[in-house]
Design a protein around this nucleic acid. Structure first.
Length: 259
DNA sequence: ATGGTAGGCGTCCTA
């Protein structure tokens, strides 16, 4: 089963690129971020025509996440637990059954947090604490699960072209990276890092020629529970997507597990 | 060199 994440930066503006990538990459399950659409505005028919079930958690103008799956999406939950007052659409999870076992797929769009310090950074850290709580509960299930999406976290110096230039950024501050490590070290596997120790950027800014200069960062991740990691067969980054027509500033990250 | 670009029911906000 091939599971992927893709921050598409506007599902309506990105629909041709999304459909092209779905046809070429043929993922079984996809977590989308930044759909920037309410549920009613999501171009569901075009994606269903490719054989996908669609579940959305949208919001007007900003944020918004969705899950696509060739197999049915069961027990869908929208919103990250821990703050009933949180209005931002950044989390959706569902179960997908394979031939033998099933996998819990959690799609996430972690807050950017800039500028830091400030209320946006406080919200990011609070959201990461809620994510850690959900991660602990997933581990306690002792079953295959994947938390994947745009984490807005640069884990290490090797994940950014110029660490010094990002020193004060909310994506790379020590407190951000420590919060990410607290989750990772609970027992998760970073799927891409299980296969690639080198440069594996997933985002290049639209500005200042970041793509042609390869000024990238690695901020889209897939974290697997031990029971999912046992089944991990491959993972990677679809870097070439960044060079397509009207591209997102992110590219897809994918993994394959035996299910 | 404090710029540059993209998307959204938008004339600013977010990234």
């Amino acid at each position: 089963m091939k599971i992927a994440t893709f921050n598409i930066n506007g599902v309506k503006a990105r629909l041709p690129a999304l459909l092209d990538w779905l046809k070429a990459a043929t993922p079984d399950v996809v977590a989308l971020q930044e759909i920037k659409s309410v549920d009613e505005g999501f171009p569901r028919a075009e994606i269903e025509d490719l054989g996908y079930h669609v579940e959305t958690h949208g919001q007007k103008g900003f944020n918004g996440v969705a899950l696509l799956s060739r197999r049915p999406l069961e027990d869908v939950v929208r919103g990250l637990p821990g703050d009933d007052a949180d209005e931002q659409a950044r989390w959706i999870e569902a179960t997908v059954s394979g031939d033998g076992a099933a996998v819990r797929v959690c799609g996430l769009y972690l807050p950017n947090g800039n500028p830091a310090p400030g209320p946006k950074y406080d919200y990011k850290l609070a959201w990461m604490a809620r994510l850690e709580a959900r991660a602990r509960a997933l581990l306690a299930e002792e079953a295959p699960a994947v938390m994947l999406g745009d984490y807005n976290v640069i884990p290490e110096a090797r994940d950014v072209h110029d660490p010094a230039a990002w020193g004060q950024d909310a994506l790379y501050l020590p407190q951000t990276r420590a919060a990410f490590r607290r989750i990772l070290h609970l027992g998760f596997t970073d799927a891409v890092r299980a296969f690639d120790a080198g440069e594996a950027y997933t985002f290049w800014d639209y500005q200042a020629g970041a793509w042609p200069k390869n000024h990238g960062i690695r901020i889209d991740h897939a974290l697997l529970t031990p029971q999912a990691a046992d089944r991990l067969r491959a993972a990677g980054v679809d870097r070439a997507v960044r060079g397509g027509d009207k591209p997102s500033d992110h590219v897809p990250v994918w993994l394959e597990i035996d299910l």
